[in-house]
Design a protein around this nucleic acid. Sequence first.
DNA 1: AAATCGTGGTC
DNA 2: TGACCAAGATT
Length: 339
Amino acid sequence: MKTLKSQNKSFSQEIYTWYSLFGRNNLPWRKNISPYRVWISEIMLQQTQVKTVIPFFNKFIKKYPTLKSIASASEDDILALWTGLGFYRRAKNIYKTKEIIKNDFKNRFPKNFDELILLPGIGRSTAGAIMSIAYQESYPILDANVKRVISRYKKIDLNGKDCTKQLWLTSEELTPEVNIFEYTQGIMDLGATVCTSKSQDCMRCPVNKNCKSAYEDINTRPKVKKERSKKKIYFTLAHSNDSFLLFKKNEKSFWESLWVPYDTNGLKGNDIFKEPANKKITNINHLLSHMELDITVEIVDYKTPFKVKTNLEHEWISKDQIHNYGLPKPIMTIIENHG
DNA sequence: AAATCGTGGTC
DNA sequence: TGACCAAGATT
């Protein structure tokens, strides 16, 4: 019988070995690993670069180091720690999930994939990451790194139909039963440092031998051509005695549940404000992923805070308390710079 | 199932 | 410098 046992190590073994030599071991969520910390980091890392997440993760963990410590946190508490990070639904989902874990799991972090994937904000990839990193059980992931690495390795067209299904099947095939922790971290590190979206350093790649795209100058990026719709927003930001009048945004749209100035809804003369002692208008162009905001903010200064006649949820928030509230980045910037 | 959901890194 | 895109999930 012809035994064609390959002299080469398998894909996962190569990744494992490479990780032990070149893995990024200094990332904060790779220290003191717990299911809770893995969960928080994985949520923050969704569609967000490592470099961006690091300070947010550290700040979050400093305030809420454990599942127990976050048990009684409010949604606003969690949103406050998300200010400036974006995709604020993630923070709301962290709130929902910790409530579910508290009420339905006796505040013990779920250990099964089937339980994890039912939790808000945890999809297949995040559940797989928690299983493999926190519990060291063999589950595939499919984040941007894995997508890129295996699509090049197997030459899967990222613009093709059903490519997501193919990618998941491929990720399953390549995912090992053993050393799952190192493999999962390793393939992400490989995608982040060697096989990046803008450069393919095939010379340093541990799986270049069987890679169908090795040393090819290919572009595996999917075509994304999205028109950004434009939206005008008119805010009136009342300020007095170092406090700012903010309203909780309750529409099911962007920045939901964050605190913003009064939205005049495009009406020039607004109803709930008296004539201010001083006013100033600033204009900001702010990009979201799917739209372009043209924000006009009229900052109106008053000698003393006044009672606001409205049914809208609102508060006068002092500057030293502002960081306990969830605000969109551009609004936070305006407030920090005013005064 | 295409749209929605943020912000900053990177070149 | 504008454009791509990043440890995706949800509806």
